[in-house]
Design a protein around this nucleic acid. Structure first.
Lengths: 369, 369
DNA sequence: TTGTAGGCGTTATCAA
DNA sequence: TTGATAACGCCTACAA
């Protein structure tokens, strides 16, 4: 059966298109059935391992398989999804991706999902509720079996969004706080800032720092981190008031600057010099490096005069001089967990919404003293 | 019409599932039609701006729109795709993603595609032909309208893969060399290494360097870069033999190490000290930083004794001391171009395969002298 | 051991 | 101005 043989399966328009464009025609069950000389339902049974159940003859099975392979048959997932079976498709909604390891998560997650037989839609919410809602609608229109997303903060879970999430058989959240569980039928993978913050502040206390300051971009996205930091400060007898412990940097516009430059410019605009501190905790490694360069430029030594700690533990920060301390949230484990939980829930309907807590870890390096 | 009203549209199994799981039922054209009191084809016409063509009454239109919005109707893209219209879905196949800006591309591309009304499947080829072929099959099964992928080298375009690519109405390639065009009906966005390499080597020549050495991971992925470097060396009268100009690092296993550590370990295993050089060109910025740290450790000064240049121009390398020179391939422009070309070809069938060349740029910074 | 028929949610083409 | 009806490709009963 060669290309010409497909003519009868196609209307004129499709056929002309195929001829002209040199496209390979897509094979259907019916084409295979005709070629072998059986019905499409027989072919379907063989190709879906339902052959024995249906008592298809050995010979027929072999021929079907042979023809299917020869013609390079690929089941149409649209049709399959339409009849009600799962689409084997997952939607992944990421906020924006200026920071490591956020921009690694899509690749890692899609790779893990692929191993489990799923394809992944990648979508961006841009930290914008409207965009988020819109993405959910599109994923629902495509009948994904589940969604994974990363809301950062309850703030992004408006009633409309909560409602929209109920369209999906399974949803898994990645977040920095654990309050979402309430009314949402979703599994939560929660990266706990508390542990890392506690370890870091304990280190500050031990090494005699008196004024730790947190540098963070303003907005709800970082609330959990701020809270964890303040709690740790209190436990160790530091002043945890906003005035003493917090330094806000304007949020970075997506696709605008890179975050290193963004933080550096802010520091250089004379704002950081008005503050007193001998330890800095920056909510991203890029910010920590910007801070170190800013301090160096002003003759302030790291770590002797000021300790600096970042967040996210990018591989590259080990290469700086002094090497940069950081808080790691071990994203490979998080990805693994997310995918495992998702697939688990896809296979086993009716599971109660659960929660996995992933403690962060303070990684001490030279910049922290 | 409240939840209970949907009962009649669902078989027992689906209904029980809905009830139990608190899922929002998905609305169909038929449900809207029944609610309004017309046929689904009328509803379809109204909802697809075909109302005037079909002469639907104003009143009917209003009611249809109102009910559709109230019930939060979302067209089923599976069904829509099945009847032959485009799926508004693109497949993106990335190699592996250990390096910047590769891990940024998926986000950037999917965001741009989203703005044009497309959703993006993210898939990984892992630099493995089998995986690649498999990904193509899955994307085809899902009837994507087009694919974008990043093959690095002709080597990855085996006959089987070329054949598989013919299943897709439109394909766009991103690559470092321009030989692909031959038999392939694909548009190519080609990042030309020549220009950046030329500028860099010219700079080496001007500043009196005598032995430039290229540090690159072994494998076909970097062939175009090697060629560009060697050509530039020849043009400037340098020895461009493999022995003189090339230093190979084993390819990094995906999900194994980070590339900074990988390069550093290799350098430290005494292999780099056997070579003579006064200028290093590393095919990734991570490698350049590893080299700088290795040299510093051995008392060799950068850039006085050895000039160091990276590739990719990661934002963070500006923060190093000395700041790291690099070759930039301006990936935002590449992404924009890829998406523009793809959409152009989707809207206008029968375009001849074209090619856009994107010259790279040498970014001089302290490490290059 | 296999074929037939109905349905999934759309769109498109008739006919009324 | 609208309603039937036939595809699209697949799956699943049920019939033979």
């Amino acid at each position: 059966m060669h290309k010409r043989g497909f003519r009868k399966y196609l209307n004129k328009k499709s056929w002309d298109f195929i001829l002209k464009s040199e496209l390979t025609p897509l094979i259907t069950l019916k084409m295979i059935a005709d070629e072998v000389g059986v019905t499409h339902s027989t072919v379907s049974a063989v190709l879906n391992d339902r052959a024995s159940e249906r008592r298809v003859g050995k010979k027929t099975q072999r021929r079907v398989l042979e023809v299917a392979r020869r013609l390079n048959y690929q089941p149409n997932y649209l049709a399959r999804g339409l009849v009600g079976k799962r689409t084997k498709t997952i939607g992944l909604i990421m906020p924006s991706g200026m920071y490591f390891p956020q921009y690694l998560l899509p690749q890692e997650i899609s790779l893990l999902l692929h191993k489990k037989g799923y394809q992944t839609y990648l979508t961006t919410s841009l930290h914008d509720k409207e965009v988020f809602l819109n993405s959910l609608a599109e994923l629902s229109a495509r009948r994904v079996d589940g969604v994974i997303f990363f809301p950062y903060h309850n703030h992004y879970l408006t009633p409309a969004i909560r409602q929209a999430l109920r369209q999906f058989p399974v949803t898994v959240l990645l977040a920095f706080e654990s309050i979402f569980r309430d009314t949402l039928q979703a599994h939560l993978v929660c990266v706990k800032m508390d542990q890392g913050a506690e370890e870091m502040v304990a280190h500050f206390a031990q090494t005699g720092r008196r004024r730790p300051l947190m540098v963070t971009s303003v907005g709800p996205s970082n609330e959990a981190k701020v809270k964890a930091f303040k709690n740790a400060l209190e436990r160790h007898g530091y002043d945890s008031s906003d005035e003493a412990a917090l330094y806000g940097v304007p949020p970075i516009a997506s696709n605008d600057l890179d975050s290193y430059t963004h933080f550096l410019r802010d520091f250089e605009s004379r704002k950081l010099r008005d503050r007193t501190f001998d330890a800095l905790f920056c909510t991203c490694d890029e910010g920590a490096i910007a801070a170190m360069n800013y301090l160096k430029q002003r003759g302030i030594r790291v770590p002797e005069d000021v300790a600096v700690v970042g967040l996210n533990d990018m591989p590259l920060i080990r290469g700086f001089q002094p090497s940069v301390a950081s808080i790691s949230w071990r994203h490979p484990i998080a990805c693994e967990l997310i995918v495992t939980r998702l697939v688990e829930r896809l296979n086993q309907t009716g599971l109660e919404p659960g929660c996995d807590e992933l403690p962060t870890q303070f990684i001490r390096r030279e910049s922290a003293g």
